Amino acid sequence: MSTTPPVVNGDHPFPRQLAEALRGNGSRPGLDQLRATAEYIRAHRGAFADWLRDLAADAPAVAEIAKRSYWHPNGFAKIVLHTGVEPEFRVRLHVWPESETVSRGESNPHSHRWEFASHVLAGTGMHMVEFTETAERGKPFRRFRYGADPANPAALVSDGEVRLKRRAVPHVQGGDVYTCDTAVVHTVRPIDAGLTATVVVQGPRRTPTTVVYCEPGESDDQPNFDLTEEDFEELVIAVLANLDSGVAP
Score class of each variant (00 low, 15 high):
99 S>Y: 00
27 S>V: 14
206 R>H: 02
52 L>H: 04
72 H>E: 11
239 V>G: 02
44 H>E: 04
110 H>R: 05
117 A>D: 00
158 S>G: 09
80 V>D: 00
173 Q>N: 12
195 L>W: 05
136 E>S: 13
174 G>Y: 00
193 A>T: 03
129 V>K: 08
1 M>K: 10
52 L>K: 10
60 P>S: 08
117 A>V: 06
216 P>N: 07
154 A>K: 14
47 A>N: 02
35 R>L: 06
79 I>G: 00
180 C>A: 10
101 T>R: 15
110 H>V: 07
133 E>D: 10
147 G>R: 01
234 E>V: 12
83 T>N: 08
37 T>H: 07
195 L>R: 03
193 A>C: 12
7 V>L: 14
173 Q>S: 10
156 L>E: 04
136 E>G: 07
223 P>I: 07
60 P>M: 08
158 S>T: 05
238 A>N: 11
87 P>C: 11
115 E>W: 00
70 Y>F: 15
187 T>L: 09
15 P>D: 05
234 E>Q: 12
2 S>C: 08
187 T>H: 07
130 E>L: 12
64 E>F: 02
75 G>W: 05
149 D>N: 14
47 A>L: 09
123 G>D: 00
45 R>S: 10
75 G>R: 12
202 Q>M: 14
201 V>A: 10
43 A>S: 15
188 V>L: 13
139 K>W: 12
135 A>I: 05
5 P>Q: 04
223 P>Y: 04
12 H>Y: 03
234 E>F: 04
221 D>F: 03
248 A>N: 04
87 P>F: 09
162 V>Y: 00
173 Q>F: 03
14 F>Y: 13
30 G>Y: 06
122 A>V: 15
44 H>P: 04
228 T>G: 12
134 T>C: 15
85 V>R: 11
185 V>P: 02
99 S>K: 09
218 E>Q: 14
163 R>V: 01
31 L>G: 06
106 E>W: 10
228 T>R: 08
193 A>I: 00
28 R>C: 02
197 A>G: 02
158 S>K: 02
143 R>Y: 01
80 V>Y: 00
167 R>N: 08
90 R>S: 13
238 A>Q: 11
184 V>A: 07
